[in-house]
Nucleic acid binder design. Structure first.
Lengths: 179, 179
DNA sequence: CTTGGTGCAAACATTTTGCAGCACA
DNA sequence: TGTGCTGCAAAATGTTTGCACCAAG
């Protein structure tokens, strides 16, 4: 459709935080390099490994995800894309999301049963969250202790941790202090 | 550490494990009593507190949930009920599930984006789980350390924990030992 | 008796899919 | 230049709702 973007897009990629236990990528790079590599080339590599194509639309979708700072719903993405003049169809958005999930670049985080929330995880630390059951307020945080506990649990069972999802259901105090 | 069952329908209710921070029940009983009370009377009390009725259908649904050992999908429940000759409509099943969620008796756990999974939690310890990203195998467990960590996180922020959901995404070893 | 509950079917919202033409490698 | 990709619209899925009749308290 319009403006071709080779592969600039790469905001705040964090240091290695994800053990890639899946067979998603060709094992030709060090984990270091992989974690710091721009997401679009990670995605491109994933696609190539499956003989799939890196199309304009797929690049646009990934771009929109990054612009959202990693947390989004399918519908939001669709609107964002439309607003930017990148007209990608709903079907393609969903198809691309599926690929990004397979690639381990994003995860699905379901809060309300309504629609899926997705989140960029590749190269980022896992985000844990706490939801107030009265007000619905959500706080996100990263807890290294939790990640360590997760790894310990896995190790004891001989599994290898890839990621996790932690949600606390709680009640915020009446005054509801902002964190 | 379990079942003192004073009334009918009530399989393996565990000791108090849930702080009820919501305004679901009338505060006339001690937490102890509440936690050990049979689920149906818990539910009945909840309904009464909202001027709702304890109908045959609602009792049947709760029964079917208990019979499933607490983990179920809406559709499964519907089939179970039908098999037992308790013909409850789909609409009523969903409506009852909503009530049980509000009452804090069950929670929604979404694994695949497809349908909701629900789980009995009232009076039970939170179940954490680990999913293998290759084979899809799921292991459930209870980790007190995690619950303690959860409570600590809440306390530091002045919140009160009500429950949590913890899922680990991992890769099981090639030999995939059974736990 | 009064209020809320139920079943049914239609409505809804989200996600998936079949197909004909288009574009990347 | 040939696969694979896209958009469209229709289908599929899971859940909710409006309505007329029914039942719990």
């Amino acid at each position: 459709m319009n403006d071709p973007k080779p592969e600039p897009t790469n905001p705040r990629i964090a240091p290695p935080a994800r053990v890639d236990g899946t067979d998603a990528f060709e094992p030709t790079e060090s984990p270091q390099l992989r974690a710091f590599a721009p997401l679009c080339s990670v995605f491109r590599r994933f696609l190539k490994s499956r003989d799939l194509k890196y199309t304009q639309e797929r690049a646009d979708v990934l771009d929109a995800i990054i612009a959202r700072d990693g947390s989004f719903e399918a519908e939001e993405l669709l609107l964002d894309l439309r607003a930017r003049g990148h007209d990608v169809s709903k079907a393609t958005v969903y198809r691309t999301i599926r690929l990004l999930l397979d690639a381990g670049i994003i995860t699905q985080s379901l809060f309300d049963a309504k629609q899926s929330h997705y989140e960029l995880i590749y190269g980022r630390e896992p985000r844990d969250c706490m939801v107030c059951m009265k007000t619905g307020r959500r706080i996100e945080f990263t807890n290294r202790e939790l990640t360590a506990l997760r790894d310990r649990i896995c190790r004891e069972l001989g599994w290898q941790a890839v990621g996790h999802r932690f949600q606390i259901f709680a009640v915020s105090p009446p005054d509801d202090p902002v964190v």
